[in-house]
Design a protein around this nucleic acid. Structure first.
Length: 644
RNA sequence: CGGUGAUUAGCGCAGGCCGGUAGCGCAUCUGGUUUGGGACCAGAGGGUCGUAGGUUCGAAUCCUAUAUCACCGACCA
């Protein structure tokens, strides 16, 4: 047997007969064992030489006309209908053959770009000992999302939601010298996070597949270089996947570290909001986007403070309606729980007032970072507020508030404003900072809004929704400090390694791709991740020997060329086959019928454009082969080489 | 965790108020006619009505408990 490589990375083998045997085997190998790109030795091929099949008559197509009632997202409905996934339980999904084919192609592209960036693959366990988590401190801080259990010896374990602890433990044992650095290790593994509310199919599942990688460097400069490489690799990956995405600045969240970028696939169904500058390429997650201080100075106080009755008005809108004033003249005061100075203190926690302009909204991520505010953020309950102030939410204001007051930058520029009186049913008018509220601190705690100035000074902000498919973090020494992960430097002194961590939600990527590429007839996959590059749809094959012969020949030739083909050899009516083949998202369909064959022609239909063209029966197969190669080449060639 | 709703055949649903041993569409199976856009005719199979108690001669239906699921919110890499 002659070694070959699969078409996705340039299949080449001169001997047609061997090619005919190898290509299907490679397909099978990829599906089952994620073998790609690398050359496959003959022995391996022999070992794998069974089970190859891409005929609908011997395949689990499992398409549905109706989608489950619980699916709200188009991608979720379509993935179920097209036979990509099936739900096993809340947040747990089985990947059917068609969905798995897509998933494996996504993994292949990831592996390829990782290799180009000099990363090395390994595989770490799904189950992890709790000791590691206790060591890093996240046994306590991770919360109920971390699924914990005991083994038969009563020892604590967790289902890995991520692998920082394991990789750090590995690195400190295996990496002893600066000479082994830099190193970038990754794996593609199942993760489990016990989400409060799994939804949207595999978009937010509890069990999901993630590619996560970790870089180890001696110096900060080294880390920065590793980080840039991964940034490039991630950009290449999502480009090759055919997704419309943006890399945006992001919050570092519970993972910690300094700089961080998210890779967001733009889609209206996205759960995240991204802020873009109108006149630069600035982009950041709204959680992080800084709201600049207003440029115009605060207007001077002109009115005395007074009291207005506002019975039953507990929201800014209601007060604004009653007083016939715009919402931005009313200050909105929220109360959050603060940190106790002494953790031993059994008394009630201190409360902190957060004051915003009435028409704006609180940014919880920013709020959590304010000194004295308890993290994770906790709003004071109605009872806590009543005990503290003697009034209920809806009538709270900063004047004479008996605790710390944090005022948003924009709200701090209000003058002669309205606010709650800290007495039920009353608001104050003509309130002014300093004069009426002498002590307060100013901070950026609101969400940026469309039209606000961009924090980089270039134009205004535009908001778009995105699906987070990748996230890269520069961790520095956060984990290596906590877990004493050191190497000896040139002077023989131990130093903590500079780490970075990089993740891609592999299963989520598939959902994001469907979300971005579909129409009323189903999924339209980009060439690089389509479950099949072409489907063969025969008309009335049972009756026509001519049709059957042509299809069989085309099927053999296409598979021999390494093209992923689905041959719909069921004796279904044409409409049924058309509908199914369109639903699953293959980019093109080869339609073969007696009517056309009489004229030595067949038809090729394109999924994305809906275009149909008649081509010569003789050249149809070679035309498809070159089209597929061209389409793959076009997407793959957009990847940029790594700097070195 | 709060609010709302649901759980009846593989999927989508009706029946429930008014208790009498379960039905529709799709899917599946058989036979036939069909076959360039989800066909038609004839027949068939498939359900301890989420689970456990209770009321009753009798419970899918009424009562109690419980589990699971979904949507909205809160929360969250």
């Amino acid at each position: 047997m002659v070694p070959g490589t699969c078409l996705y990375h340039g299949f080449s083998c001169e001997d047609a007969q061997i090619r005919g045997e190898i290509a299907p085997l490679l397909y099978n190998a990829r599906i089952r064992h994620s073998v790609s790109r690398t050359q496959i030795p003959g022995g391996c091929i022999l070992f794998l030489s069974q089970g190859f099949n891409m005929r609908t008559s011997n395949y689990l197509l499992s398409t549905l006309k109706e989608s489950p009632a619980e699916a709200v997202l188009e991608s979720h409905k379509l993935m179920v209908r097209a036979g990509y996934i099936r739900k096993l339980a809340s947040g747990l999904y089985t990947w059917l053959p068609t969905g798995l084919a897509v998933l494996k192609k996504v993994e292949d592209i990831i592996r390829d770009e990782m290799a180009k960036a000099g990363c090395v693959e390994l595989l770490m366990p799904f189950v992890q000992p709790a000791d590691l988590w206790k060591e890093s401190g996240r046994w306590i801080h991770y919360g109920p999302e971390l699924c914990r259990f005991k083994d038969r010896h009563n020892v604590d374990f967790v289902l890995g939601p991520t692998h920082e602890e394991v990789i750090t433990a590995l690195a400190r044992n295996e990496i002893k010298s600066y000479k082994q650095l830099p190193l970038n290790l990754y794996h593609i593994q199942t993760k489990f996070r016990d989400e409060i509310r799994p939804r949207f199919g595999v978009m937010r599942a509890r069990e999901f597949i993630m590619k996560d990688g970790y870089s180890f460097d001696l110096t900060t400069e080294g880390l920065q270089k590793s980080y840039r490489k991964m940034y490039r690799a991630y950009s290449n990956i999502f480009t090759r996947l055919g997704l419309d995405f943006r890399a945006v600045q992001a919050d570092t969240g519970s993972i910690g570290g300094s700089s961080s970028h998210e890779f967001q696939v733009l889609a209206d169904a996205g759960e995240d909001v991204v802020a873009f500058a109108s006149e630069s390429d600035y982009a950041s997650n709204i959680e992080l986007t800084e709201c600049l201080e207003p440029k115009t100075p605060r207007a001077p106080a002109t009115k005395p403070m007074g009291t207005v009755p506002t019975p039953g008005c507990h929201t800014v809108d209601k007060v604004a309606n009653l007083l016939k004033v715009p919402a931005n003249t009313i200050a909105k005061t929220l109360v959050v729980v603060g940190e106790k100075k002494d953790p031993e203190d059994k008394g009630p926690a201190p409360l902190i007032a957060i004051v915003l302009c009435g028409n704006q909204t609180l940014n919880e991520v920013k709020c959590e970072k304010i000194e004295g505010v308890k993290a994770p953020l906790e709003f004071a309950t109605s009872d806590q507020i009543n005990a503290f102030l003697g009034c209920h939410p809806g009538s709270i204001g900063p004047v004479k508030f008996p605790g710390k007051i944090v005022v948003d930058r924009t709200a701090a520029h209000m003058a002669d404003f309205y606010c709650g009186a800290n007495r039920d049913g009353e608001h104050l008018s003509g309130v002014n900072w300093d004069r009426d509220v002498p002590e307060y601190t100013v901070a950026d705690v609101r969400n940026i809004e469309e039209g606000d100035p961009s924090p980089d000074g270039h134009g205004t902000i535009v908001l778009k929704r995105g699906i987070e498919v990748g996230h890269i973090f520069a961790l520095h020494t956060k984990y290596s400090d906590a877990m004493q992960c050191t190497v000896l430097n040139e002077e023989g002194k131990p130093v903590n390694m500079e780490m970075g961590c990089y993740g891609i939600g592999v299963t989520r990527v598939v959902a994001a791709a469907v979300e971005q590429h579909h129409d009323e007839n189903g999924i339209i996959m980009p060439e690089t991740i389509a479950p099949f590059n072409v489907t063969i749809v025969p008309m009335n094959m049972k009756k026509s020997e001519k049709v059957r012969d042509f299809c069989e020949k085309a099927y053999k030739e296409l598979t021999a060329a390494g093209i992923d083909v689905l041959f719909d050899d069921r004796s279904e009516r044409p409409g049924v086959m058309f509908a199914d083949m369109e639903l699953i998202g293959a980019p093109r369909m080869l339609v073969v019928g007696d009517r056309d064959l009489e004229k030595d022609q067949v038809e090729i239909r394109y999924r994305a454009s809906g275009e149909r063209k008649s081509v010569s029966a003789e050249t149809a197969v070679s035309e498809i082969i070159s089209e597929v190669k061209a389409a793959l080449g076009e997407l793959n060639s957009k990847a940029k080489p790594q700097e070195e």
